[in-house]
Design a protein around this nucleic acid. Structure first.
Lengths: 130, 130, 130, 130
DNA sequence: GTGGTCTAGACCACG
DNA sequence: GTGGTCTAGACCACT
């Protein structure tokens, strides 16, 4: 598994985990329909609490990234389903404070669009390597 | 004052305040050298505790957006000083999880760059209206 | 714990605490990765408010001496991380007024370098005693 | 006059003033017996409050750097008199927290003694230029 | 049980 | 009157 927890990070563990799984999906390391390790197993692998993993899975389920199948295994949702959760206004809301700070600090729209491309390139190069 | 707190929001008050002030600077509503209301005043205006405002001001000071001036109280820092706090890697780090989720949900790089332009346009149109 | 507050001292409590912890790290009494008492515990031990301890910890965190670890609570940062916060110009700035006064009062560079060695010896002899 | 106040500095004005005058003496820009501008005049020159200048002068008087003459003009004390105020233990006390932080951050005794020499050189080169 | 946040009231240093 | 410091008591998120 490619997941790694930074215990000395400000970000809560469940949120680190959430972000990494989402990035795994974005970069194609986790594919549609692929199933994730059980709560118990992932907790053991990472050396963290069961509740924490559970919280992450629930969060990802509510966000539409995962679905819990009847046999209790957790799998990556289909792309079409995920698309239904898209909300540009929400994304904009999240970007706003980051871009505001960046703008104040002299990062112009050119720089920012470059960054966006950089990140999307990261996603795609990962896909190719798989 | 254009600041407004949403008490029902999950985001801590001090952080809402921080974001709004940064956006005020980005959009030119708060100009370099302009002074902000005193801790007590702003706390009274917003109906919150002065320590919460104090925390926000201190945070913004540490981030380089504000400086305490011995006679003008708290003022907006100069652009040049703010520029020293720019770190593209940090911005990228902040964008990463947002773009990952957006990408999973079918927002391609085209859409995202449009959003970036939208937001930068917001900043600039505000500037023109002043 | 080796920490001791002088309540009759002009220096703010949180700053006394900060200095003593930094000296503890410098002298090896607090080692890399070692964890400090909880905010509440230390506050109780020293007979001060937990917010004061909290302020100290946050200050030391911002200065790179401490990090909050999600399981070990607050721990001493690694030496490498601390090294990133070194700024000779800043140190020089801090030394300037002290050395100016010392110089006026007839303490020449010889005396001062001796003092520097004295202090560094203190740090090292403490290390050996552990 | 070579004095300059930074209103956006954390350090109180009276302390900035104190440090600069001490540095002026250390570097020979202010010589033994030379008299300083009146409280009123210096306050006007710097655009600060009378009380602030007064506080500085009183502080410097208590520290032995200045003496108030009978005709109310303030003059730089003689070197011999200043020497009586020397206390190595006090200097050491002041250096301690600075060197502790520096040491943690990887500035060894070599680096620090260099800094000391740098600063003393500053004092002396100023003297030669006068 | 930990640190983080918010509120509240008090005193002080500074200008 | 300003920000800075300290104390006190409360609730919450995280693990």
């Amino acid at each position: 598994m490619f997941l790694k927890i930074q215990f000395e990070n400000d970000m809560p563990i469940y949120e680190q985990l959430r972000n990494q799984i989402v990035q795994g999906i974005a970069s194609g390391q986790l594919k549609e329909g692929e199933n994730l390790p059980s709560v118990r197993q992932l907790a053991a692998d990472l050396g963290i609490n069961l509740h924490t993993v559970n919280k992450t899975y629930n969060l990802l389920k509510n966000e539409g990234f995962l679905v819990v199948h009847r046999r209790k295994n957790v799998i990556v949702n289909s792309c079409e389903k995920m698309h239904k959760y898209r909300s540009l206004t929400k994304i904009k809301e999240q970007l706003y404070p980051i871009l505001a700070a960046a703008s104040c600090r002299g990062a112009d729209r050119q720089k920012l669009t470059e960054l966006v491309h950089d990140i999307y390139n990261d996603f795609e190069t990962n896909k190719e390597n798989i």
